[in-house]
Amino acid sequence: MVALQLGGAPAATLGEVKNRADLIIFWGSNPAESHPRHFTRYSGTAKGRMNPNGRKDRHVVVVDIRKTPSVKYSDEFIQIKPGNDYEVFTVMRMIANGHIPDTDMVGGIPLQTLIDLVERCKKARMGVLFFGQGITETKGKHQNSTAIYQFGKDMTKHSKFLTLPMRGHYNVVGSGNVMCWQTGYPFAVNFGKGYPRFNPGEFSVVDLLLRREPDVAVIVAAEPIDHLPYAAAKHLENIPTIVLDPRKTLTTKIAKVIIPVKHAGVSVEGTAYRMDHIPIKMQAVLESPWPKDDIPLSTIINRIKKIRSEEKKTDGGKAA
């Protein structure tokens, strides 16, 4: 997200990827296990307007630190040394701009392989680089993604080229979109002064928890005990944590208050944003006795307003 703000990026829907792209690169992403049908629906075997033969019309490259299950569906596998993504993208940008560095290997990859890859990107009818957590969760973090977006920008001088993140949770894109629409910022927002302030590193969850600043936590449809670094997650055990979740998780185990809710997309309808920012209406197939999560949240909001107005009245009485 920070990378997107620093670099900017051209966007397209997965439908365009399916219909137009003839070069697909998965970098630090293993769709065979993380997004199993991405390949068949959009990026691999799917037949499209300009790809009538499906898989035969596309060249698929996988770049990863190990031979992942996705490699067997690719035409080319490039193995990179862990933590060298930024360096490799910097060199790829050099090559793209006509500077060949005086070295044989970059990040465990032969220089010629990178020269060939850049050439392929330049000549593509439409190239798409999908990057995953292998980029965002390694040394360099958002700087890696920034380097990718900048490489994508360089490539647009030669061909149609997209750099798209392989988002994980089904509506993580929606959470960013809703927060942007409502507060102006995509994440790490603080309302402490009565208006939204954005500062990743200060108001982002891991940093807040590591500094042990929050005194109450509300966890909505997430699993921080499982997903956050241990030292950060540990603070949630020491403060009252309120969890809204349809299922028992490691986070509900440490919760002070558990509020059961319907499972969006399973037991209640709702809207979610696909990884290419397309809103999709989800259906319900099962019945659940609990309300949808915005209902208890509304009740909490109304109750807090009431508690505050009552407190104001009593305070006013004392003052008089």
């Binding site: 005194d215 969006a264 915005d294």
Partner: peptide, 16 residues
Amino acid sequence: PLIYGLAATDVDAQKK
């Protein structure tokens, strides 16, 4: 307080 998560629910809940 901290409110965290939002990624595995629908947009109405996120808005709330």
